[in-house]
C-alpha cells in the first residue's frame, strides 16, 4: 500500500548573497491517513521549510531537489503550477503560526471562508453562506452568523486560529499541516485548539503533520515524532519510545534540558548555538555541542537502523533493557 505522503532525500538550498545555504538536508518523511506525525526542532531546523516546499510556497531563490516527493500518488516535483493549485488548499491544508497575520485584514472572515468554498468546491452564494456557518460551528465559534461579518482584528488570537482551521477544513483535506498552530496562544486556548485538531483528525481520518518546538505538545498529541536539527532529521521514533529511550544525543540533551525533567536547581543545558550558514561542521552537525562526540564524528556520520530510531549518529545511545521490552511488544 502506498503512503499518502512520501518524501525521500529532500534537500532545499537557498541562493543567498553569501552563497548557497542548505536549509533542509536529505530529509525523509512519510505520513499516512489517520496518522499524527510531529516534527520537532529548534528554529532554523528546517521544519517549516520542508512543508512549504511541499506546498510550493517557497520563494524563487529556493532550490528544491528530492528523490521522491509524492502526495496521493502524484509527483509534487514535476507537477505543473496549475495542477498543484488544484491540490494545495484542497487536498493538503496548512495552518500557519500567527493566526492574526495569516488572515487578510481587509476582508471579513465570512468572505475569506467563502473564497475557499467557491474556488475548491464551486458552491453557489447561498450554499457558501450556509456551509461557512456550518464550518464555524464545527470549530466551536459561538454565534457563527454574526461572526461571518467580523473582521480578523475584531477576533481574538484563538478565534482567528479557529477560523483558519475552519477554512482549511472546508475542502476536507486528506493531509493537514499545522505549523506551530498554538505557539502564539495561551495555554488554556492551546489546549482547546489541540483537542479540536485531534478530534477533527480522528473524525475525518486525516493525516496530520504537526510542526512544533514544544515537547509538551508533542507528548500530548503525536503518534510518531521526527526530530530535526539544523536541517537534518536526526531521529524518528514512536512518541512513547522517544521520550523513554531517545537514541540521538541531541534528543537526549533536549529532553533533559526541560525544566520538568530537571532534578536539581541547575538545568543540564546544551552549550553553544545551532550552526549557521558559515560555521557548518564537516560531518555530524551536532558534534561541536555533543558530549559523546569523538574524532570520527568530524569525518563522517552514519544513519542507524530503525531499531535505533534511525538516529543520525555514530554513537547512538542504547539501553540495556530495550531488547526485552521490544520483544514483549
Amino acid at each position: 500500500m502506498k503512503k499518502l505522503l512520501e518524501i525521500k532525500n529532500l534537500s532545499i538550498d537557498f541562493q543567498t548573497a553569501g552563497g548557497l545555504f542548505r536549509a533542509v538536508d536529505h530529509i525523509d518523511m512519510t505520513c499516512d491517513s489517520g496518522e499524527v506525525l510531529a516534527i520537532v526542532g529548534e528554529s532554523g531546523s528546517g521544519k517549516s521549510v520542508a512543508m512549504l516546499a511541499l506546498m510550493g510556497l517557497l520563494p524563487w531563490n529556493a532550490k528544491i531537489s528530492a528523490e521522491i516527493m509524492q502526495f496521493d500518488s502524484k509527483n509534487m516535483l514535476s507537477i505543473s503550477k496549475k495542477e498543484r493549485r488544484k491540490i494545495i488548499g484542497k487536498h493538503i491544508g496548512m495552518i500557519f503560526q500567527e493566526p492574526m497575520s495569516s488572515l487578510n485584514p481587509c476582508f471579513t472572515v465570512g468572505f475569506q471562508i467563502a473564497e475557499t468554498l467557491k474556488l475548491h468546491l464551486g458552491l453557489k452564494r447561498a450554499q457558501r453562506r450556509r456551509k461557512a456557518i456550518e464550518l464555524l460551528e464545527l470549530v466551536g465559534i459561538p454565534a457563527p452568523e454574526t461572526r461571518l461579518n467580523a473582521f480578523p482584528h475584531q477576533l481574538s488570537g484563538g478565534m482567528c486560529q479557529r477560523v483558519m482551521i475552519a477554512m482549511v477544513l472546508a475542502s476536507k483535506p486528506k493531509l493537514l499541516i499545522a505549523d506551530e498552530p498554538t505557539t502564539a496562544l495561551d495555554v488554556t486556548i492551546q489546549a482547546q485548539i489541540l483537542d479540536l485538531l485531534l478530534a477533527l483528525q480522528r473524525e475525518k481520518n486525516m493525516a496530520l503533520i504537526l510542526i512544533t518546538h514544544d515537547m509538551g505538545v508533542v507528548a500530548e498529541t503525536a503518534e510518531r515524532v521526527q526530530v530535526q536539527y539544523a536541517g537534518q532529521k536526526v531521529e524518528e521514533q514512536k512518541v512513547d519510545n522517544l521520550f523513554k529511550t531517545p537514541h540521538h544525543p541531541y534528543t537526549l540533551a533536549l529532553l533533559s534540558s526541560l525544566p520538568e525533567r530537571a532534578s536539581g536547581r541547575k538545568l543540564p543545558s546544551i552549550a553553544g548555538l545551532v550552526p549557521g550558514q558559515f560555521d557548518r561542521p564537516p560531518a555530524c552537525l551536532f558534534a561541536p555541542r555533543c558530549s559523546f562526540a569523538k574524532n570520527l564524528c568530524n569525518k563522517k556520520v552514519e544513519k542507524q537502523s530503525n531499531a535505533l530510531g534511525q538516529a543520525l549518529c555514530n554513537f547512538p545511545i542504547t539501553y540495556p533493557q530495550q531488547k526485552s521490552a521490544n520483544a514483549k511488544v
Binding site: L254, L267, S269
Partner: peptide, 13 residues
C-alpha cells in the same frame, strides 16, 4: 529556543 532557554534559566539561577 528550547536549548537556549535552559542556558538563560541557568544564568538567572
Amino acid at each position: 529556543d528550547l536549548s537556549i532557554q535552559a542556558q538563560v534559566l541557568n544564568l538567572l539561577t
